[in-house]
Write a protein that binds this DNA or RNA. Structure first.
Lengths: 134, 134
DNA sequence: TTGCTATAGTTCGCATTACGATATAAGCGC
DNA sequence: GCGCTTATATCGTAATGCGAACTATAGCAA
């Protein structure tokens, strides 16, 4: 499972990988804030935007964000208040709540996501080199 | 800078990449806790272990962890109390404090780092596929 | 119909955590 | 001495996700 014992280079690769991850997350946080969003907002909007119909159930969203449902509810509350998402009760099962990204939400992440893609493209050679050295 | 406008697949790739990052971080947190450490402890120990002589100045450690120096000081305090790191004043410049991983610290991360490498090896094809699709 | 159980979402209070601001102390070079 | 750097200490703050408990809806069984 763990494979051969790790040598110095392995530790370096693991540490550098983590460092680059921290840098990417930091980049993402700053980019979100510069766009008037919180980092969490961006992650919700991105997840919804990537969903087939731009909407997800609260529970499914929680699973994708690795959050508890009630934490997701609070996050959605804030986003709804900002007009970035909308809640729609499912007609067939009124327990279910669809969280849909709004037009404003789409507009908000368009350039933000583009910046993230650009950053990942920049990081790509380094990440591939690091992954390849493990 | 931002390149061509993003299509649905681009958003999917970005969202899935973030999801996998969250999963890796979650894995790391749980692995650290299972080893009797906090996630922060693991990151410090890994960073020190990857350093040439197993030691770093507080300021350099802060830079690598993307923390403020005083936050790093508190983190080091807790680690020192647990016997996982040691402080050594530099003989040439007594302002500087080298934070060195202890034998106990090394022992603590040996199998933990191995599990991380195994997890990253498992994730590697997926991450490369995602990076390649951007 | 009644009752039990499960699911989906929400509400409330709490604990964690790194931070900003600020201060202190000590050591270095000029 | 003076200015700069490095590390440490302290205090309050603000955000954020969690556990526990709650409501509402749905499904099922006798």
């Amino acid at each position: 499972m763990a494979g051969d014992p790790l040598c110095d280079r392995d530790y370096e690769a693991l540490a550098t990988f983590r460092y680059e991850l921290r840098r990417f997350v930091r980049f993402s946080e700053e980019a979100a804030i510069a766009a008037g969003l919180t980092p969490q907002h961006y992650q919700v909007l991105l997840t919804l935007r990537a969903s087939p119909d731009g909407a997800m159930l609260v529970g499914a969203l929680a699973g994708r964000l690795l959050l508890r449902p009630h934490s997701t509810t609070e996050l959605v509350n804030r986003l709804e208040k900002l007009g970035l998402v909308e809640r729609h009760h499912a007609p067939d099962d009124r327990r279910k709540v669809h969280v849909a990204i709004s037009a404003q939400g789409r507009a908000a992440i368009t350039s933000l996501a583009a910046h993230h893609r650009a950053e990942l493209r920049r990081m790509r050679p380094m990440l591939e080199r690091l992954l390849g050295s493990m």
